[in-house]
Design a protein around this nucleic acid. Structure first.
Length: 288
DNA sequence: CCTGACACCTGAGCGC
DNA sequence: TGCGCTCAGGTGTCAG
């Protein structure tokens, strides 16, 4: 499930259903799911047995389970990863990759991932810029829901890049949590075309698009996230409903809510970008 | 250093 | 039906 609101929905579910429980046994059903755990599946399962989960945390699209062993299980959902809380004995999902059982014999935790772009790894926690993070994600910037998020610093970082504004929004080292959907929504709200060069954005415009990203992701979280199909669900398998509130993403041909022009779709980085041709005019100097 | 292209996967939906 | 193509909420790696 991908972007920040959807990942936060999952994190909250993990906090509610697996925090304060002790792991009894872990099974890795597909090696790719733990490819980031360099020491391999045996090391992964061996070190998790008997460990208690203290908390579920998140930065951007990454989440991790803090363990009483002072380590963490770092997780990324990739394009299609799910964390499901299921009764023991429920039939295995087709793409079940990792199963975590607990010593209370309550519901088990399942990492399910069709495309296997996501994965789990055991990692050390490290102090990074005042935060305690799995060391593998030390390079990931704070997200807009982080209490210590610094909007001014994000504005400066974005404007220091020489690239297109949407590429910058998707760069998780500048600001984290934003993906293709919320980038398009933020650009629509800020009335910016995705190809606008970052180094020519005045600070107020850069701030506007970053604030819009924060705002739209907060609204999406209230709605339980964005979900077009069964791939994007919370730990109980339920979909969010923010898709009904999208103004740009996936709206090709539909009237812009502000001006009525038909929303257009343009190729962008091997996928698509949706925007309003009138509210978000293409930059004059852009090649596209 | 920084930027952009590409690889990594599976499955759904479409036109022929 | 079936084939081949395109598309999909992401990111690590590598060449220039």
């Amino acid at each position: 499930m991908p972007e920040l609101p959807e990942v936060e929905v999952v994190r909250a579910g993990l906090e509610a259903h697996v925090a304060h429980r002790t792991i009894s046994k872990v099974e890795v059903l597909h090696p790719r799911a733990i490819r980031r755990h360099v020491l391999g599946a045996e090391d992964f399962t061996g070190r998790l047995a008997g460990v208690r989960i203290d908390a579920a945390r998140r930065r951007g699209k990454y989440l991790w389970l803090e363990l009483d062993s002072a380590e963490a299980v770092l997780a990324h959902l990739g394009m299609s990863g799910q964390m499901l809380v299921q009764p023991e004995g429920a039939p295995d999902e087709k793409h079940l990759r990792v199963r975590v059982r607990f010593d209370d014999e309550g519901p088990e935790l399942r990492f399910v991932d069709q495309r296997t772009f996501g994965g789990l790894a055991l990692d050390e926690l490290a102090e990074v810029d005042g935060a305690r993070l799995p060391s593998a994600i030390a390079h990931i910037a704070r997200d807009p829901m982080d209490p210590a998020f610094d909007l001014g610093a994000a504005v400066r970082a974005l404007r220091s890049r020489r690239t297109e504004v949407k590429r910058a929004l998707l760069d998780q080292t500048l600001v984290s949590g934003v993906g293709n959907i919320y980038a398009d929504e933020a650009l629509w709200r800020a009335k910016l075309h995705w190809a606008r060069p970052t180094d020519k954005l005045v600070a107020a415009r850069a701030e506007a698009v970053l604030a819009a990203a924060a705002e739209v992701m907060a609204e999406a979280l209230v709605a339980g996230g964005t979900s077009f199909d069964a791939l994007y669900v919370n730990v109980n398998g339920e979909s969010g409903y923010f898709d009904r509130s999208l103004d740009a993403y996936g709206q090709e041909g539909l009237p812009c809510r502000r001006c009525g022009s038909a929303i257009r779709r343009e190729p962008f980085m091997n996928r698509s970008s949706y925007s309003c041709p009138r509210c978000q005019p293409r930059p004059r100097t852009s090649s596209r």
